[in-house]
Every structure is written in structure tokens, then in C-alpha cells.
């Protein structure tokens, strides 16, 4: 057992998979000698060399396309896109190319690759801190994985590399420095499985990435201050979505809260609430409540903190709702 940061967990997972399979390659801007803009690929260039760990020019379309062409023909590329917001300059690949190739060719073409994005808030402002998980969730053919802890980074990134479909792997910028226990040896997790991190009987709180530790902290306070016992579930992936775990929990607690970092409209919580309304309506004791960032661009620096769901806001919202 070792204590690893979330960023070191990224490098650990990539090393584990590159050691296992010589067809796994890593590419992106500054990933090789510089070890990544977020220092999440430190040591990989030294370990695996310039043939397998490759710096690219600032050509997001070129290296997304190159990853796809390589994936179609036999390699397993891991691409580092740096800031998630940059997905917009190569969105063609996310929306039209990776997810459609297998379908359009009636199964002839495969696209086993992993695109790593540094997602979410970190005080850089409107063009460097968006939460783009809902952009990705809308597209049939993609898988969307969103880890919240170092151990999940290792297991889910390894699973993503081994997955035969294109996986969008959303790392959270503000979690890179967070530490956690990670067992020694090979770790391989399962995509599409949510994890119940805190059992509870009064309400279900669903969260992703940075919102997970906040939801957990809020649950502790709600219990201590108000006696409200919340179940906290880390969804871990949006595509596929573990609706079984969600529905089972909501059917027991009768209450649903989603904590979403994305701007409000079309956030993943909206889809979850619609599923729950369809399939567990009569188990609900009150309306589901979405706690989200407002539907505005994000300002930089500490102004950001006023908008992203905080522990205080989660506590207040749950308390107010439950006592209404």
C-alpha cells in the first residue's frame, strides 16, 4: 500500500498498461520530456522512451486524428488533451469520428483509445475551467469516465486502456494534488460501476469528481448537525451509467440530490432525474433536487468559489429540502 497523489496515480496507471502491452502509446503537448502540463506523466518518457511517449505540436486535430488512425489499425493510444476546454477545437473527433466509426462501418472499424482531459474548476476562468462531462455524455458511441480518487484513477484508467471503445477520461484539475491510499500491484477496475462511498437511509446524494469529497463532507455535517443520514454515491462514469445502483438507493431513501459542477442546463443530473422520475417516481418522498453551477461562464480566481457547489451549499440545500 502506498500513498499516491491523484496526479501520480495517472502516471502509475499509464506505466502499468504500457508495461503490459507494447502497443500502448502516449501522446500530447508536453507529455514527454516535460512530464505533462499538470505533471501527470512524469517519468514515463524516461521509462518508455521517445518511440512510445511522444510530444506533439499544438495541433489538436492532428493528434486526435493520429490517435484514431493508430487505434483503428492496431495501437492503443492514450492522448493528453491538457485543458478539457480544448475539446472544442477538435470536437469533430469526439462527436463525429471516434464514436461513429464502428457503427457506420457495421463493426468493421474499432477505435480503442483513451482521451485524457484535465476537467473542471481551478480558478483559471471561463476558457480553462469548464466541466465538459455533459458535452461528452450526449454522444452515443463514447464512454465517459470520471474518477474522484487516486485508487480509482489507477483502476479506471487501466480499464479504459483495456476497453475496446473510445473512452473520454476526465481528470479533475483540482484533485491532482489530493492523496490517497493505493494498493501495490496491478489494479484494474470496472467501467460503468458507481460506488457507494457512504451508506445512509434518509437521502441519496450523487456526485462526480471534485463534487465527491464535497458531498462526503456535507453528509458528515448533515449527520452531525441535523441528524440527516445521507447516502453518497460516486457515479464514476456517465457512459455507461450505473442506473441500477442509483435506482436501488433512491428506492430506499426516497430522496435524490445531484451535485454537479457543470453549468445547469443539460447536466448529467437532469438525465438522472428524468430516469428516476420514469422508473422510481412512487418511491420518491419529494422532488429531486439538482445542485449545480449556475448557467453562466465561470469567472476566474476566487470568484469561481462562489459559483461551484460548495460543502455549505450542499448542506444548506439538503437541510432546507428535507425540513420542508
Amino acid at each position: 500500500m502506498a500513498e499516491l497523489t491523484y496526479r501520480d496515480a495517472v502516471a502509475r496507471a499509464i506505466a502499468q498498461e504500457m508495461e503490459r502491452d507494447p502497443n500502448v502509446v502516449l501522446l500530447g503537448e508536453d507529455v514527454a520530456k516535460a512530464g505533462g502540463v499538470f505533471k501527470a506523466t512524469v517519468g514515463l518518457y524516461e521509462k518508455f522512451g521517445p518511440k512510445r511517449v511522444k510530444d506533439t505540436p499544438i495541433s489538436e486535430q492532428a493528434f486526435m486524428g493520429a490517435a484514431m488512425g493508430a487505434a483503428m489499425t492496431g495501437l492503443i493510444p492514450i492522448v493528453d488533451l491538457m485543458f478539457a476546454d480544448f475539446a472544442a477545437v477538435c470536437w469533430d473527433f469526439f462527436a463525429n469520428e471516434f464514436p461513429k466509426s464502428r457503427y457506420m462501418t457495421n463493426g468493421q472499424v474499432k477505435c480503442p483509445l483513451v482521451i485524457r482531459l484535465a476537467n473542471g474548476s481551478a480558478r483559471f476562468g471561463a476558457q480553462h475551467c469548464q466541466s465538459v462531462e455533459n458535452w461528452c455524455m450526449m454522444i452515443p458511441g463514447l464512454k465517459v469516465v470520471v474518477p474522484s480518487s487516486p485508487v480509482d484513477v489507477v483502476g479506471l484508467l487501466a480499464a479504459s486502456v483495456r476497453d475496446p471503445d473510445p473512452v473520454i477520461f476526465l481528470e479533475h484539475k483540482s484533485l491532482y494534488a489530493v492523496k490517497g491510499e493505493v494498493p501495490d500491484g496491478e489494479i484494474i477496475d470496472t467501467i460503468g460501476t458507481a460506488k457507494t462511498l457512504r451508506p445512509g437511509k434518509d437521502a441519496t446524494i450523487l456526485a462526480l469528481a471534485l463534487m465527491v469529497p464535497r458531498a462526503l463532507a456535507a453528509a458528515e455535517r448533515l449527520k452531525a448537525e441535523s441528524g440527516i443520514d445521507c447516502e453518497v454515491i460516486d457515479l464514476r462514469s456517465l457512459l455507461p451509467l450505473d442506473t441500477r445502483t442509483i435506482l436501488e438507493s433512491v428506492s430506499r431513501t426516497g430522496r435524490l440530490f445531484t451535485v454537479e459542477e457543470n453549468p445547469r442546463l443539460c447536466g448529467w443530473g437532469a438525465e438522472v432525474v428524468s430516469i428516476v422520475a420514469d422508473e422510481a417516481f412512487y418511491d420518491l418522498d419529494g422532488p429531486p433536487v439538482r445542485i449545480t453551477t449556475p448557467h453562466i461562464p465561470l469567472p476566474p480566481a476566487e470568484l469561481e468559489d462562489l459559483l461551484i457547489p460548495s460543502v455549505d451549499r450542499i448542506v444548506e440545500t439538503v437541510r432546507r429540502t428535507m425540513s420542508a
Partner: peptide, 29 residues
């Protein structure tokens, strides 16, 4: 989108530009 992998036809692409990048990846492999 005519594609026949067994004949080496790796796809017909309808969004202008993308497949030049994808072809780079095939050559890189």
C-alpha cells in the same frame, strides 16, 4: 462512408479535413 477493411479501404469520411489526420495515425502505426 464506404469502408472495406479487408480491401484496405479504411473509410470514407464526410467531415472535411479529419481523415488527413486519421491517415497520419495509420501511417504512424
Amino acid at each position: 462512408h464506404l469502408t472495406s477493411v479487408e480491401h484496405g479501404v479504411m473509410g470514407s469520411y464526410a467531415i472535411i479535413g479529419a481523415h488527413l489526420c486519421i491517415a497520419c495515425g495509420s501511417a504512424w502505426r
